[in-house]
């Protein structure tokens, strides 16, 4: 059985009130359809990358799958059960500001182990995960005292410590500089090998998708529909300048509207 099934999903926004307390949501004309009949299956333990033109479709789709928003029509099933709200088993990694700024690294990571009763065990696990993402020595720093990359790492630690079933990542490395982004990619590949987690990853960077994903979902312009759903069975490390991967990369660029090879 597939891990996630999306069936006939539609999302249209009509109410005016929605935008008032939404910083992270895009501004759309009223009554616009964002998602138009999305059908999708995602395998257990897969790493699925979503690419598509800028707009709100990708993020909205991810938020619906995570249970933060409700679809206008259609269903999302996780393990055969319809989604009707967020779950501590399905952790969302946000675009930015995903840490609570009034909590230290340690306190933020601790949000993920609230169900562990034994306080020694809890402390040990927190240290372990902070070290895992390379933030040793920054336990008592506040988010504003960390660099962009460190903040992302802290958030990843907070997500991983829950041993999540599904990881939803909404352009998590979009705001990072080029080298840090490459580093984070490498670590995501490690995470995917070490953890038994299904990862859904939005990116605007096609190369990032090619390097990370074992499934790439290409979405169209609004009203968003599936343009392609490509399986990627290439081993890591991946060099997208050669062979089959290079051809695939050209093909994806072409589908995204970049017609001459760059």
């Amino acid at each position: 059985m597939n891990k996630i099934e999306v069936k006939g999903l539609y999302k249209a926004y009509s109410d005016k009130g929605r935008r008032i307390n939404g910083y992270d949501e895009c501004r759309l004309p009223e009554g616009s359809t964002v998602l138009h009949d999305i059908n999708l299956s995602i395998k257990r333990r897969s790493f699925t990358c979503f690419v598509g033109p800028s707009g709100c479709g990708k993020s909205t789709l991810l938020r619906i799958m995570a249970g933060f928003e409700h679809p206008t029509k259609g269903w999302v099933f996780i393990d055969g059960m319809p989604v009707n709200g967020p779950s501590p088993r399905h952790i969302f990694v946000f675009q930015e500001d995903g840490l609570l700024p009034w909590m230290t690294t340690r306190e933020n990571v601790a949000l993920g182990v609230r169900d562990i009763k034994d306080s020694d065990e809890r402390r040990r696990r927190i240290i372990e995960y902070i070290e895992l993402v390379g933030l040793k020595g920054f336990e008592d720093h506040y988010p504003h005292e960390l660099s962009g990359g460190m903040r992302r790492r802290a958030e990843v630690a907070r997500a991983l410590i829950t041993n999540p079933d599904i990881l939803f990542m909404d352009e998590p490395f979009g705001a990072l500089d080029f080298l840090t982004r490459l580093q984070m990619r490498e670590e995501m590949i490690n995470v995917h090998m070490m953890f038994d987690t299904t990862i859904l990853f939005i990116t605007h960077d096609i190369d990032e998708a090619i390097q990370l994903g074992d499934q790439i979902v290409i979405l169209s312009e609004r009203p968003t529909n599936l343009r392609a759903d490509i399986p990627l069975a290439f081993p890591h490390p991946r060099d997208f300048t050669k062979g089959g991967l290079a051809a695939l990369r050209r093909d994806i660029y072409f589908q995204m509207g970049i017609h001459t090879a760059l």
Binding site: P86, P88, F94, L100, R114, T162
Partner: peptide, 17 residues
């Protein structure tokens, strides 16, 4: 309170606060 970012509420929801 009315001006608190939605993201913070989502984090709270996600981690079951």
């Amino acid at each position: 309170v009315a001006g608190i970012k939605v993201t913070y509420f989502r984090i709270a929801q996600n981690f079951g606060l």
